[in-house]
């Protein structure tokens, strides 16, 4: 076994990527300091990939203590956030740079 295969196997074991299944993907947009859609329904007990596209010229920060995530999305850029697996329930999030307007909810359902 050559070194590159060994390194790949080692990295796969560390990262848990050897049997990586397709992750359900959802998209959020930020426009005029608002999240669209403001409410997103995702499956319970499943890891989910959120693609957040910031259409504004200014940066925003996706923040949620309930989801244990914080991520800056620069103006005109996009970011990827992985959440879950989560139990059914409501998990609020907001934009830290515009907390009064940029608010949303992840609803986790069976």
């Amino acid at each position: 076994m050559n070194n590159s295969i060994k390194y790949t196997l080692f990295a796969s074991l560390l990262l848990g990527a050897t049997t990586k299944a397709e992750v359900p993907t959802f998209t959020l947009e930020i426009r005029d300091h608002l999240f669209y859609p403001a409410q997103l329904v995702v499956p319970a007990n499943t890891k989910v990939k959120l693609i957040i596209i910031n259409r504004d010229a200014t940066p925003e920060e996706f923040e949620s203590y309930e989801l244990n995530r914080e991520k800056i999305i620069m103006g005109g850029a996009k970011a990827i956030i992985f959440i879950g697996p989560l139990l059914p329930g409501d998990y609020p999030f907001f934009g830290e740079f515009n907390p009064k307007t940029a608010q949303g909810l992840i609803r986790v359902e069976n």
Binding site: L15, G16, A17, I80, I81, F82, I83
Partner: peptide
């Protein structure tokens, strides 16, 4: 090294 929550653990 890794995106939070993407893999089994974060590094």
């Amino acid at each position: 090294l890794t995106e939070q929550g993407e893999y089994w653990a974060d590094w």
